[in-house]
Computed example of a mutant assay.
Amino acid sequence: MAGTVLPLSPETMTTDPYNAQTPPVALTQPLTPVGAFFVRDHFGMPRLDPHRWRLSLGGAVEAPYELGYDELLAMGRREIDVVLECAGNGRSRMTPRPPGLPWGERAVGCARFGGVPFREFADRAGVDPDVVEFVFTGADSGEAHGRQVAFERSLALDVALHPDTLLATHMNGEPLAPEHGAPVRLVAPGQYGVADVKWLVGARAVTRPFTGVFQTDEYVYVDSKGTPDGPVTTVRVKSMITTPGPGTTVPRGSVVDVHGWAWSGGTPVRRVEVQLDDGDWHIATLSPPTGPYAWTGWSLRWAAKHPGDHRLLARATDADGDTQPLQTPWNAQGYGCNPAASVDVVVR
């Protein structure tokens, strides 16, 4: 996209708290620019001084302790390219529309996160053998369901201690911006973004499943068709069409390069198919991702022969055999929306 000037900020959804989605042009890039990356905030953005920041680890561990920012940086930095997607991404496509932010399809992006595996921190403390989860606490807090709570979310023990679960300090090579969780956030690749607790200040090991607001009241599948009720976890297989954009006019007789991305929760994408209107599905060409949690590029050449309004659909299939459905899977809170991507174009 030589010569294209990318927007410096995402598109605002709400101002207080600030929530915004990634602009379309930024989604054409393999790594989404930080300044255009979507933002999800529940209670307002805390401002934390890195030099005073401390992360405490407690609960069912042998030796609780704290870690400072400089100490964390001194432990080195592992970098992983990760698709970060809000669990409510695409909610506006559900009928009837569930409550919650009316996200379009752009509460998503792919970034290179750098930090230290959480397991290195946990190993220092010594985890009790009866531990089943770690609960992660952010510095942001507010009222939810009639009570004052901090933003907290738990991860199953195997996910929390996976070597790719990071205490992230950097995003696309730069220190985290405040809106993205500075100075330190959690990044759990393959999980929906709610797991990636921002403004991280605490972690505790627990021997029973966590039942906080954002674990059992919010960010759960309820009355879901085809999904057991319970917390949202792994990202579902999904795709997007980045070019042509919605409403693009295409000259009749031209050959159009259709491009997009596909991703799944750490499971490789094996196939992307593209359909014009109600015609046959055609296999797109895949480009290798930059890592196991990054999105996979795909492309297909389409001969625009027939004038009129047309709809392009794209659906991805991952290595587990899961394929995007053609219709939006509904649930009462509007999570995990992953129908086939679509874009309407005009041939003249």
Rank of each mutant, 00 (worst) to 15 (best):
A2M: 10
G3A: 14
V5D: 14
V5N: 13
P7D: 02
P7E: 06
P7H: 04
L8M: 12
P10V: 04
P10D: 06
E11R: 11
T14I: 08
T14H: 10
P17K: 12
P17D: 13
Y18E: 09
A20L: 02
A20R: 02
T22Q: 00
P23A: 09
L27I: 04
L27S: 05
T28W: 06
T28K: 07
Q29T: 08
P30E: 11
T32D: 06
T32K: 01
P33W: 07
G35S: 13
A36L: 08
A36C: 09
F37M: 10
F38M: 09
F38E: 05
R40I: 12
R40D: 11
D41S: 12
G44F: 06
P46T: 08
P46Q: 11
R47Y: 13
R47S: 14
L48H: 01
D49V: 00
D49W: 01
P50G: 06
R52E: 12
W53Y: 01
W53R: 04
R54M: 11
R54P: 08
L55P: 08
S56Q: 10
S56L: 09
S56T: 07
G59T: 02
G59M: 07
A63I: 07
A63Q: 11
A63N: 08
A63R: 14
Y65P: 08
E66K: 04
E66Q: 12
L67D: 08
D70P: 08
D70S: 15
E71C: 04
E71G: 15
L73Y: 03
M75A: 06
M75L: 14
M75H: 03
G76D: 07
R77F: 00
E79N: 11
I80F: 09
I80Q: 07
V82E: 03
E85F: 01
C86E: 02
C86D: 05
A87T: 05
G90P: 03
